[in-house]
Design a binder for these strands. Structure first.
Length: 407
DNA sequence: ATTCCACAGGAAACAGTGGTCC
DNA sequence: GGACCACTGTTTCCTGTGGAAT
């Protein structure tokens, strides 16, 4: 191997090291203390919890805000400090954190809570199994565990709106009601984190009044705040003068337009830095932010389509081939394609549902149009590039022949 | 004013799967 | 081993919708 080649490899490696000095600062979920600029909200949560501790009574909280507004990060940070302070006062606090979107059924939420409380490790009987128990039995086992050990518990339920939407508020009702029985020996505090302000309307009035004791709204970050957040991260993550002011401003502007999503801003910066590294460029400017934006969009769409079910993929093909884009026509084409690959078509009702799911994911756009005498339908059109669709279907053996219709 | 179209979308039920309990 | 439970994906049934046609 020639000296030149070796020199080249090591020079590039050094360049890479010079570009980013702390990768952790560019991961979305890593939120360093005091770097999310939510002093007011942090104070309110901390004060509410202090009151709970002083009075040894529950003090439920609801946090609202669009994705990427720092709700989860703030609450995790406050709870961490709260736990430390309580421990120094000799009070043990048990905290469970469950994301109701990931644990997407009521039972899974209970199971996650039980796991976080280590019920299955600490108990030899009355464990909360992965499945097989009724909701009531699982709830009772958790409550018995709390009662027996006189615990002070904080349940944090992230994306709580998703839990209520799908499963109603039974769990929340049981926990808020159970509290009345445990007040003498401990308390259960519920902290709900939600993306939707209107989800409260779906709650039982008793749950609502109890859960909404304190509500905190996280307004979307303004562009200027996003710039501040990015500048702090850049200072810690990159070497000096690697990221231009223009790049930071563009990142903030793009994320600012998208509901003030700080997560998106940081993600853009991370991907831009990866592209710059790959291209062996030592400075990140606006051009790389644009490239990152395109890459993120393309990658997301590609992954969604690739991991979709066969029927969803056929629906996407049918939409691309539909002239008018109305539901009837799409369904007709879809059925034809199904038969061509020996697949029994699903019902139109289910296809309507799939189209609406695709709409929510941003892969297609659909608008309801009323054509009077000619009925009411949707105008559906595909929003991702045909090439992305083709790429993501390429490796699916079922689509070997069907994919040719995209040419 | 009424009818009618072509659906949208909610609710309930069902089938199949994978688990626990007694 | 049968009763029971939860979950997912789906079907079936049904009501609602808004504007052109009559």
């Amino acid at each position: 191997m020639s000296d030149d080649l070796l020199n080249n490899i090591f020079d590039n490696a050094v360049k890479g090291i010079q570009l980013i000095k702390n990768r952790k600062m560019l991961t979305i979920d890593y939120v360093p203390d005091k770097l999310f600029f939510r002093e007011e909200e942090t104070t309110t949560i901390a004060q509410t919890l202090s009151v709970a501790l002083k009075g040894s009574r529950p003090s439920n909280l609801l946090l609202f805000g669009k994705p990427g507004t720092g709700k989860t990060a703030v609450v995790k940070n406050v709870i961490k400090k709260f736990k430390e302070k309580s421990a120094s006062l000799g009070i043990e606090i048990t905290v469970t954190f469950v994301n109701a979107k990931l644990a997407n059924t009521a039972y899974k939420v209970l199971y996650e809570i039980a796991e976080e409380m280590s019920i299955n490790k600490l108990e030899t009987r009355n464990q909360v199994y992965f499945t097989g128990l009724s909701l009531g039995e699982a709830t009772n086992r958790i409550l018995d565990f709390i009662k027996k050990r006189k615990l002070h518990v904080i349940f944090i339920i992230d994306e709580i709106d998703s839990l209520v939407d799908k499963n109603g508020d039974d769990i929340l009702y049981n926990f808020t009601r159970a509290n009345e029985q445990f007040l003498d020996s401990g308390f259960i505090t519920l902290i709900g984190v939600s993306n939707s302000l209107t989800f409260k309307d779906k709650l039982d009035p008793r749950v609502r009044s109890s859960l909404s004791e304190e509500e905190i709204v996280f307004n979307p970050y303004k562009i200027i705040q996003l710039q501040k957040i990015l500048k702090e991260r850049v200072k810690l993550a990159f070497c000096e003068n690697v990221v231009t002011d223009g790049a930071i401003n563009l990142c903030a502007a793009i994320a600012g337009k998208d509901n003030g999503d700080a997560r998106k801003a940081i993600d853009l910066l991370r991907v831009a830095s990866e592209i710059a590294e790959r291209d062996k460029v030592s400075q990140i400017d606006e051009k790389f932010i644009r490239l990152a934006q395109n890459k993120i969009e393309k990658d997301t769409n590609f992954e969604i389509v690739k991991n979709s079910t066969t029927h969803t993929k056929i629906v996407l093909l049918a939409i691309t081939k539909s002239k008018n884009g109305n539901t009837g026509e799409v369904y007709e084409i879809y059925s034809k394609y199904c038969k061509s690959i020996d697949n029994e078509p699903l019902t139109q009702r289910r296809i309507t549902q799939i189209i609406s799911e695709l709409d929510q994911l941003g892969l297609v756009s659909s608008n309801i149009v009323n054509q009077g005498r000619y009925g009411r339908s949707q105008k559906i059109r595909i929003t991702i590039p045909i090439n992305t669709l083709k790429e993501s279907l390429k490796d699916d053996p079922l689509f070997v022949t069907l994919i040719n219709i995209l040419d």
